[in-house]
């Protein structure tokens, strides 16, 4: 009985931490779906968002005002990226765009630190991380808060895509960019909005990750955690990003506890990549990703 309880505890802990991965992955999916760009700069965006918020807040700007100001900055950044990086590179092969975002991530990271300094900031969202017990299973209240936030955000994104005109335009562009162009949609404007939206996702993810790890340079490395999530879930599916995140979170924790001892421990940090690699061999487009079909 105690074994089962322990298993559940590990599983729940893993699932909840997986939600944090999903949050990062969703930012990728938004951009990939609408513009076909694998945005490596998503981590840098996350760092930029969290650092901007913390720095403003530390300088005495109230919580919600800091959020608002950060959002404005993210919108400006999103528009700038579209204008300066994406527009000149339109129609280039995906690898070119990917490398551009790789470069972009260094620029954003550097810019963020130039602007706000390099010291580590603590971030207190006012949620005490006290574990509480549900039926004998200990659950972290912070993890639960993070999961609830993520769920809310996913719900908002889904409603936005389904019921607004911009959402309709997003889906049209994601489905067939050339037809969207012919129908008269302004692709450049839509891309700027998408980058801003993924900046908003980055802000939420950045705040949650920042509260856990401290807001600092290494925050941008959470992108690396999002990659196995995307491989598992598929690069163009928001549902996939969520399921992928949960899977990665759960397998990593379970593997650490149950397989770890045989390998000397510490496998949590790389086990997800092994799973992703194995998955690539079986199902390259991920669980929910669109199959690549080339018409000849």
């Amino acid at each position: 009985m105690e074994d089962v309880q322990f298993f559940i505890e590990v599983l729940v802990g893993g699932l909840l931490s997986g939600v944090m991965y999903s949050l990062v992955a969703i930012g990728f999916v938004l951009i990939y779906k609408t513009s076909g760009v694998l945005n490596f700069a998503q981590g840098a965006l996350l760092l930029f968002a969290a650092l901007t918020f913390v720095s403003l807040h530390e300088r005495g700007v109230p919580f919600w005002a800091s959020i608002g100001l950060t959002l404005v900055l993210l919108a400006i950044l999103g528009t700038l990226i579209e204008r300066v990086v994406l527009r000149p590179l339109v129609n280039q092969p995906p690898i070119t765009l990917f490398l551009a975002t790789l470069g972009l991530s260094y620029v954003i990271e550097g810019g963020a630190q130039l602007l706000w300094g390099t010291q580590v900031h603590g971030l207190d969202l006012g949620i005490d991380d006290v574990p509480f017990e549900v039926g004998g299973v200990l659950i972290s209240s912070f993890d639960l808060f993070a999961a609830a936030t993520a769920a809310l955000m996913v719900a908002l994104i889904t409603l936005f895509f389904r019921y607004t005109r911009i959402g309709l335009a997003f889906r049209a562009v994601a489905d067939d960019p050339f037809a969207a162009l012919a129908v008269g949609l302004r692709l450049t404007r839509i891309w700027a909005i998408v980058w801003t939206a993924s900046g908003v996702v980055a802000l939420v993810a950045g705040l949650l990750w920042g509260a856990r790890l401290g807001v600092q340079f290494s925050l941008s490395l959470v992108v690396l955690k999002a990659l196995p999530v995307l491989v598992l879930g598929g690069f163009d599916s928001i549902a996939g990003a969520i399921i992928g995140g949960l899977l990665v979170g759960a397998t990593e924790k379970l593997a650490e506890v149950y397989i770890g001892p045989f390998l000397g421990g510490g496998i949590e940090s790389w086990f997800a990549y092994v799973v992703a690699l194995a998955f690539l061999l079986v199902r390259p487009s991920g669980l929910f990703g669109q199959k690549l079909v080339e018409r000849v």
Partner: peptide
């Protein structure tokens, strides 16, 4: 034709009105 395949027929039509 280049319809938006994942959108419904009506949503496809509505995208035509988005442009203007």
């Amino acid at each position: 034709r280049h319809c938006f395949r994942s959108l419904t027929v009506e949503e496809n039509l509505l995208t035509g009105a988005l442009g203007r």
